[in-house]
C-alpha cells in the first residue's frame, strides 16, 4: 500500500500493539481482582497493584507515541481518527486498571473475615465487564463497528446486576447493622464493575467513531 509511508504505518501498528498489551493486562487484572475477592487471596490482590504500575507506564507510552505521531506525521482521516481514538482508549484502560486496583484493595480488607454471603452476582458482573472490555478491544483491532455496537445490551445487564447487588446488600444491612462493614465494600465493588463496563462502552463508542467517522457518544445509540 503506502508509498513512502511505511514508517508511519509501522508506528500505527506499534500503537495498536501497545493498546492490545494494555488491554490484555487490564482484562487479567479485572479477573484476578474478583478471584482475589472470591478466594480471599490477599497475595493475588497485591499482585494487581504491581501490575497496575506497568499499566500506568504503558499509558504514558501510548500518550507519547500519539502526540509524536500527531506532531510529526500530520495524520489525516482514518489515521487521525485512529490516533485520537488510541489516546482515548489508553486513558479508558488506565482508568479500568485503577478500578481493578480499588477492587483488589477491598478484597484485601475482606480477606481476613468470613464473606457475608456466597458471591453470585458480583462474579457474573465481573465476567460480563471483562467480556465487554475484551469485545471492545476486539472491535478496535478488527475495525468492526458492528462488534462495538454489540456491547450496548451488556451494559444494561451490568447495570441490572449492580441494582440487584445493591438491593440485596441494603436489605441484609437493614436486618443486621453489623453486616455493614462487610456489605459496603461489596456495594463499592459492584459500583466499580459497573464503571468498568462504562469505560468499555466508551471504548466501543470510540471504535464506532474511528471506523465510521460518526460521533455516537452522549446520544441515542
Amino acid at each position: 500500500m503506502a508509498d513512502g509511508r511505511e514508517h508511519f504505518q509501522r508506528e500505527l501498528q506499534k500503537l495498536n500493539d501497545l493498546i492490545l498489551k494494555m488491554g490484555g493486562m487490564v482484562e487479567k487484572n479485572i479477573f484476578n481482582s474478583v478471584e482475589a475477592l472470591k478466594k480471599q487471596d490477599a497475595r493475588l490482590a497485591r499482585e494487581i497493584m504491581t501490575s497496575d504500575d506497568n499499566l500506568d507506564r504503558l499509558e504514558l507510552e501510548v500518550d507519547d507515541l500519539c502526540l509524536e505521531l500527531l506532531a510529526t506525521q500530520q495524520p489525516m482521516a482514518v489515521d487521525l481518527r485512529f490516533i485520537t481514538t488510541g489516546l482515548r482508549i489508553g486513558s479508558d484502560l488506565e482508568r479500568i486498571g485503577d478500578l481493578a486496583v480499588d477492587i483488589a484493595q477491598r478484597a484485601i480488607e475482606l480477606a481476613d473475615q468470613p464473606l457475608l454471603k456466597p458471591l453470585v452476582d458480583i462474579p457474573k458482573m465481573a465476567e460480563l465487564a471483562e467480556k465487554m472490555v475484551h469485545r471492545a478491544l476486539d472491535a478496535f483491532v478488527k475495525r468492526d463497528a458492528e462488534l462495538a455496537r454489540g456491547l450496548w445490551p451488556d451494559e444494561d445487564k451490568v447495570d441490572h446486576y449492580r441494582d440487584l447487588v445493591y438491593d440485596e446488600l441494603v436489605d441484609m444491612m437493614s436486618k443486621d447493622t453489623k453486616a455493614a462493614s462487610r456489605a459496603i465494600p461489596l456495594i463499592i465493588i459492584s459500583r466499580h464493575l459497573e464503571r468498568i463496563a462504562d469505560h468499555a462502552t466508551n471504548i466501543a463508542e470510540d471504535v464506532v467513531y474511528m471506523v465510521e467517522g460518526k460521533v455516537i457518544k452522549h446520544g441515542p445509540k
Binding site: 495524520p75 489525516m76 467517522g213
Partner: peptide, 19 residues
C-alpha cells in the same frame, strides 16, 4: 474531508496511501 471523508479514494489520497 480531512477527518472523515466519505469516499475511499479521497481517504487513500489524504492519508498518503494513494499510488
Amino acid at each position: 474531508i480531512f477527518t472523515a471523508p466519505v469516499n475511499k479514494k479521497t481517504e487513500d489520497y489524504i492519508t498518503g496511501r494513494f499510488g
